[in-house]
């Protein structure tokens, strides 16, 4: 396991500044959510952390233990399953054996579908396979790029429970990018609000798990939402 340390990170594409002066320290095993309006730079921040984009200024470092880039996995907005591989082989794509792949499928409750083709599964099932694929190699860091955005409300709740359960069990460092504040409060220990490429709010969520939508929950939610909308 390892944490992530960003020091005055900036990122621009040409003249377009997407991230500015981000200082962020993410401790190992924690669950952080990044929320904000669309275009606030949250997906770019995730891609920087994943090493998919280079920083324009500042630095990115992995802390608290041995860090290998191969231990970072991403769950994308779309499932990105390979249509020409069976479910099991899709899970095994990250260089794990069939046994590990089967175990990962079992964890997301889809071991019965291992020989199916991806297009035979529903959207929620496909995202569960994508989760299994991300977890199969026992990653240290798991990055979620709005993975539940395209799912219906019920499937979404199921997936949130599943993600929470697996995180509690394996304690991988998690960063979730989402536009859904309720999802962020539900899952994360810490919510970061991005606005125009900078950190606008950094809030700890001190609620016991599994979280219910009680008064405290909604007050967190309202607090964060006000910040996003009010700017």
């Amino acid at each position: 396991m390892f944490g992530i340390e960003l020091q005055s990170v900036g990122k621009s594409f040409g003249n377009n500044v997407v991230l500015r002066d981000i200082n962020l320290s993410i401790s190992k095993g924690s669950f952080t959510a990044i929320v904000g309006k669309s275009g606030c730079g949250k997906s770019t921040l995730l891609r920087v952390i994943a090493g998919l984009e280079n920083v324009t200024s500042g630095s990115l470092a992995y802390t608290d233990g041995e860090a290998k880039k191969s231990n970072i996995r991403i769950m994308f907005q779309d499932d990105r399953l390979l249509p020409w591989k069976s479910i099991l082989k899709n899970v095994a794509i990250g260089g794990v054996g069939m046994k590990e792949a089967e175990e990962a499928l079992e964890k997301v409750g889809l071991d019965g579908k291992k020989d199916a083709w991806p297009d035979e599964l529903s959207g929620g099932q496909k995202q569960r396979v994508a989760l299994a694929r991300a977890l199969a190699s026992k990653p240290d860091v798991l990055l979620f790029d709005e993975p539940l955005g395209a799912l219906d409300a019920l499937t979404r709740m199921e997936m949130q429970h599943l993600i929470e359960e697996l995180w509690q069990e394996q304690k991988f460092t998690s960063i979730l990018v989402t536009h859904d504040v309720s999802e962020a409060v539900h899952l994360a220990d810490r919510v970061i609000v991005l606005n125009e490429g900078g950190i606008q709010m950094d809030k700890q969520i001190d609620l016991p798990r599994q979280r219910e939508r009680d008064e405290k929950f909604t007050s967190y939610e309202k607090n964060i939402l006000d910040k996003i909308i009010g700017g």
């Binding site: 991403i74 994308f76 390979l82 794509i93 260089g95």
Partner: peptide, 23 residues
């Protein structure tokens, strides 16, 4: 997007070719 996924999941160039590009 599939190629990007392959890179994130640590596939070598040859693996990218045989697993994603060729099929």
């Amino acid at each position: 997007k599939l190629i990007e996924m392959g890179k994130v999941y640590g596939l070598s160039k040859w693996q990218l070719f045989t697993n994603i590009i060729l099929p």
